[in-house]
Design a protein around this nucleic acid. Structure first.
Lengths: 193, 193
DNA sequence: GTCTATAACTCGATAGAC
DNA sequence: GTCTATCGAGTTATAGAC
């Protein structure tokens, strides 16, 4: 099963529009006209809107997995966690406009009572497990998962409020506070040899 | 201008449905059938859907203002802040199902590029200013506003993650962590006399 | 006059046949 | 890839009920 270029473009545009306008507010016509194809052509690749959502979530899961694996090459666990936290800075413009893509999609699907909600929440699980690994590497055996969830929650809160306030200074201040929290965490990294 | 009972019922049901299903996903038919009136009757009370949204936001602003004023009778500023934090516990069932009503509405309106977004975000301003007042009462002259935003962001993050994970233990743990953070804050409450 | 119900209109959505 | 069917949304018009 080859992945056609058209299918790829549909997924890419759907991914962007689901983020910027929301899943429900995005229509087939919006996606089709944005990439310059007919609605019929669309139907050749995806039979229903739910099928596109499925593809977008799969796409995001893969992208997240790839990003985390890339960060795994960073030397210190704390630096890896910092990489995660700094997504908020890197993507600040979009976050201030549309919030976090993961959090907002999960929230929307929850309200729609959509079956894909659990699958969208899986993206959080990837971050959660990866972050917990880093905290375990820092010697936090018992509370690694709780610390991972704490970082996730803090990040989500920053995204929501930055979007509501449209305030970059707030975003930067709260990111700095989160980094300070991480910095004062006891580091029990076991030394080799 | 009297407020008819029907108008009141429309606002009340719209408020609930906008929270539970989202603004856009809620149709006139949904509201009408839920309270047992005809769709046509709607337009006697509201000229458009945006007008209902306007009324719902006004309603929430008033309710928030009233809640904050009620809390102002609490003796200590820290207890007042605790009252705010504990909304997460009190409303945990709905929050785990639909998130925070303020955060999710603001997020949705941002994506829809809806003019009412700023007005919805005003609810956050009420909480922000009230919380800042409490922190000032605790002697935090310079960082009262930043502390207020920190509490708001932490609360929003907890709501988002609790809804994504459907995990009450997580919610309670993070609320406890936030209360612990508040508890270790220096209290410089000036004594009278 | 205030409220409510019925019905029809317009538009844009998904879905699907050709 | 075009073209159409069907459905449901917001909205409007109009007329009946209190």
């Amino acid at each position: 099963m080859s992945r056609s270029a058209t299918r790829e473009r549909i997924e890419e545009k759907a991914d962007a529009l689901f983020y910027e306008a929301g899943f429900e507010a995005t229509s087939f016509a919006d996606i089709a006209s944005a990439i310059g194809i007919s609605r019929g052509n669309f139907y050749h690749h995806f039979k229903s809107k739910d099928e596109i959502l499925e593809a977008v979530i799969t796409r995001r899961l893969s992208a997240t997995q790839a990003m985390l694996e890339a960060w795994d090459t960073d030397a210190a666990p704390k630096d890896r966690i910092l990489s995660f936290i700094r997504i908020l800075i890197t993507n600040r413009t979009k976050i201030m406009a549309f919030g976090c893509p993961v959090g907002t999609l999960t929230t929307e699907l929850a309200k729609l009572d959509h079956i894909a909600e659990a699958r969208a929440a899986q993206i959080f699980t990837l971050f959660r497990d990866w972050l917990a690994d880093q905290f375990r590497a820092l010697g936090h055996r018992d509370d690694a998962d709780a610390l991972a969830l704490h970082v996730l929650a803090r990040s989500q809160g920053i995204a929501v409020m930055a979007s509501a306030l449209k305030d970059e200074a707030f975003l930067r201040a709260e990111v700095a506070a989160l980094e300070a929290w991480l910095d004062q965490l006891p580091d029990h990294t076991p030394t080799k040899g």
